[in-house]
Amino acid sequence: MTRWAIGADVGGTKIAAGLVELDTGRLIERMELPTPRGQGAQAVIAAIGDAVLRIDDAATRSDVRWQGLGIGLPELVRLDGTPASQWIADWRGVDLPQALSRFAPVRVESDVRLAALAELRYGHGRSLPSFIFVSIGTGLSCAVCRGGRIERGARGFAIHFASSDLVSFAATTGQRTTFNLEAFASGLGMSEAYEARTGRAATARMMVEAEAGPEGEALLDEATTALASAIGQVINLIDPHGVVIGGGARHGAALLRHAQGQDTGLYLGRGVPGSPGSVESAQSFRRGRRGSRPACWRGRRKALISRPDSAP
């Protein structure tokens, strides 16, 4: 018997929903709605419900009966499935699964862990004993998979690598410097940094597509260098078999290509022979199917690999 479910990915700018065949990962219906960010939790719940109703109508027309609803949030999510942060909305006192239980049984998770789970079941993770999934979008986050399991941590918060401030001191002067990678190199962070530098507005996508002038090109190079450095340090800590890079922002794939121009091998610990392979996520909502043209880091060289449905 074929198993079906509806997934709703709540992002910083849009809610993407789709009807998925669970055994294969095949996506047969999909749609997007703008995220009502800043309008409260009930507005977000209503938007998710609207998206689910539209997908459900399409499923009925296709004579598909689905059994569950999965919701990915760009939030910290506790082990019991309750949101623990308030980036998209203030979830305190809100029972999100109950609010949507009229549709089907509901599971709520951090969006990056669900992306890593999809990669594990349907993408490059099928051939990697361990991997790190790094999400580049409006924000930055990551998830670690070992032995077929996504690590959730003691409280469910094991998705951070870029959101906390890093403090350093100059060796000669003792001058203190504070740096936050997400505030600088995410899609939102790049836009805010560009406006602070120039007084003009530009999106990260405009910088990737060389539509933001020399200031945008310089910021893009700095942001991707910082990203490569941070990913190299995560590699040092975890020592995975591979790194999979994805993200929901429209500029994500292009930003990935720029990031892969920066060599993570330069940031590995001394004596480490080289970085593991790094590939673009094989999961693509916009294409509506599995497959991509992954770009792969191999130590200190780059190679484009046209292998749509397999890991490198």
Rank of each mutant, 00 (worst) to 15 (best):
M31V: 05
R26T: 14
L220H: 11
G299Q: 10
V279D: 00
G18M: 06
W297I: 12
A143N: 06
A230C: 11
P312E: 07
G174Y: 03
A154Q: 06
L73S: 04
S168H: 00
G12R: 03
L237Q: 11
L268S: 10
E32Y: 01
A158T: 02
L237E: 05
H241T: 04
R152T: 06
A228W: 05
I159S: 01
T225E: 15
R250I: 06
A282G: 12
M190T: 12
V94P: 08
V44T: 07
A311Y: 05
G216Y: 13
T60M: 09
A162V: 03
G199Q: 09
V44Y: 03
V208C: 15
G137L: 08
F169V: 09
A295V: 15
M207I: 09
I15S: 01
S101F: 12
S306V: 06
A5P: 00
G248I: 12
G25D: 10
G242K: 09
A196H: 09
L256F: 14
D165A: 09
A104V: 05
D50H: 11
R65Y: 00
W4V: 01
P83M: 04
V144Q: 02
E192G: 00
W91M: 06
P214E: 14
S110Y: 01
G232Y: 10
G125F: 04
G269A: 13
E119H: 11
V244S: 03
E109D: 14
V10F: 00
R92C: 03
